[in-house]
C-alpha cells in the first residue's frame, strides 16, 4: 500500500486539480479580465446546444478533459470550449469532418 496520502502517486486526470503540488506556489491573478466577443459567443453557442439537447454540459466537460495536457494549459478557457464543442459534434455526427474542413476553407 502506498504511504503517499497526498494522492500524488495516483493517476489523476489533468483537469482534476484539487491540491496538486505543481500549482500550490503559483500566485492567483485576482485582476478582472474582460471577456472577448469570442468568449461570449462560444458560451452562448454552448448554451444553445444544451437547451436544444444537441450536447450536454457533461459532454462538454468530457471533451475538455480529452484535450492533451500540454494544450489544456496553453489554451484559454473558451479556446478549450470551442475545441471540445467541435470534437463532440464531430463524434456525434452532428457535423462531419468534410463539412468542417470545407467551412474552414471557406472561412
Amino acid at each position: 500500500m502506498s504511504i503517499d496520502t497526498t494522492h500524488e502517486s495516483q493517476p489523476r486526470a489533468m483537469h482534476d486539480l484539487g491540491g496538486v503540488s505543481r500549482f500550490l506556489c503559483e500566485e492567483v491573478d485576482t485582476e478582472p479580465h474582460a471577456l472577448t466577443d469570442f468568449d461570449r459567443e462560444v458560451d452562448a453557442i454552448r448554451q444553445i446546444l444544451g437547451m436544444k439537447k444537441v450536447m450536454s454540459v457533461d459532454e462538454l466537460r468530457r471533451g475538455i478533459e480529452a484535450i492533451p495536457e500540454a494544450e489544456y494549459h496553453a489554451l484559454s478557457y473558451y479556446q478549450r470550449w470551442i475545441r471540445a464543442i467541435t470534437a463532440t459534434l464531430l463524434r456525434k455526427g452532428v457535423i462531419t469532418e468534410g463539412e468542417l474542413l470545407a467551412a474552414l476553407e471557406a472561412g
Binding site: 497526498t6 494522492h7 495516483q10 489523476r12 486526470a13 482534476d16 484539487g18 491540491g19 457533461d58 466537460r61 468530457r62 478533459e65 480529452a66
Partner: peptide
Amino acid sequence: GPCHIRTPHYLR
C-alpha cells in the same frame, strides 16, 4: 479508459 468522473482524486 475514457471516462468522466466527478469525484475528485484527492478524496479517493
